[in-house]
């Protein structure tokens, strides 16, 4: 391996790592607020990429009826949840959020899709389709489980993942898709050729990290989310409903997922089941970050990306073995650093 190849591999690793980082950030966000390890995060990525590809091809993506269906279910779930306190205005608010909003999105997708309105509009429509799914999924699947153990939440998460992957197969078929890049430009840098697309990707990842950091440290809503994560009862006393915080975190996760999908779709082929393995690697990064720290998770994600890239050069058949065995020492190190057996309150 010479220096040029090493540089190329590093570049490849960083670009892949950026996607893992985006997933890891969403996982950390959702976990800190709801204790759910969001395995379906990968599906948001696939949905984002494949929805964009459908729009690009001028067809109405299957995610649109799904959005309407989920909205309807969320409406029912919200009504059931608030049945004791719901008045006319409350009902109207729920109907707006759960029925009218997806309705508008679906209508615009239906009108715009055959017109092929150009990449930018298509991306916006894609984000508008996938983002609300997060909140709806929270209302339908996870809010009723708010008091369950992390393990039960995890298995419920597996259930949602199975259902979403199955739906992905129905909507998009077994074969993959790609989309045109956001930017055709490329810049020579020494031996490297840096594509505009990969710059977009890294830039947006950084922007999201900074955005999350600002959101959590500077805004009231962000602080409220953190507060919910730290102490649910306390947050409730302060007037922050954990359910609302959960819903918000899921929507943000779905947004980041869809955006990641939009970003990788031009770089690689995305399949209905692409989400699982990249989601798992994002999960690895999130865990190394202790499911708590954004910078640590992002750094771990880049590390995973680089290890993967180098491993696929050195021993491609054993790439996953190398990636996953490499994390064991890291996990040990993190375990030893975290407090030993002291479960005293």
């Amino acid at each position: 391996m010479d220096a040029t190849i090493l540089l190329l591999l590093l570049q490849d690793g960083v670009v892949n790592g950026a996607i893992y980082a985006l997933i890891a950030l969403s996982l950390v966000l959702v976990f800190t607020v709801t204790r759910v390890i969001l395995i379906p995060q990968g599906e948001f990525v696939a949905y984002g990429a494949l929805t964009l590809a459908s729009l690009e091809a001028g067809t109405l993506p299957g995610t649109v009826p799904l959005l309407l269906g989920l909205g309807g279910l969320a409406f029912l779930a919200d009504c059931a949840e608030g049945r004791h306190s719901l008045d006319g205005r409350g009902l109207l608010r729920l109907a707006l959020r759960d029925l009218a909003l997806p309705g508008i999105v679906a209508a615009s997708a239906w009108i715009l899709a055959p017109m092929k309105p150009g990449l930018l509009i298509e991306i916006l429509v894609t984000l508008a389709i996938v983002t609300p799914m997060g909140g709806f999924l929270h209302a339908v699947a996870f809010r009723p489980l708010a008091h369950a153990s992390v393990l039960v939440l995890l298995i419920a998460s597996v259930g949602v993942h199975l259902a979403l992957t199955g739906l992905g197969l129905v909507f998009f078929g077994a074969e993959g898709s790609r989309t045109p890049p956001l930017s055709e430009a490329s810049f020579p840098a020494g031996p490297l050729l840096i594509s505009g697309q990969s710059l977009w990707m890294i830039g947006l990842t950084l922007a999201i990290i900074v955005g999350l950091w600002l959101f959590f440290s500077r805004t009231l809503l962000g602080k409220a989310l953190i507060a919910t994560a730290v102490n649910r009862l306390g947050a409730r006393l302060m007037g922050i409903a954990p359910a609302l915080a959960g819903r918000l975190s899921f929507s943000v996760a779905a947004f980041i997922g869809a955006l990641s999908g939009v970003l990788i779709a031009p770089l690689t082929t995305v399949y209905y089941d692409t989400g699982f393995l990249i989601g798992l690697k994002g999960f690895v990064a999130a865990i190394i970050g202790g499911l708590a720290s954004y910078p640590a998770a992002a750094a771990a994600a880049i590390l995973v990306g680089i290890i993967e890239s180098v491993a696929s050069f050195e021993a491609s058949a054993f790439k996953e073995v190398i990636v996953f065995m490499a994390i064991i020492p890291v996990l040990l190190w993190r375990s030893l650093r975290s407090a030993p057996v002291e479960d005293e309150e």
Partner: peptide, 9 residues
Amino acid sequence: AIVFGVLLV
């Protein structure tokens, strides 16, 4: 798979 996932939840 879809129905199984939903039933599980």
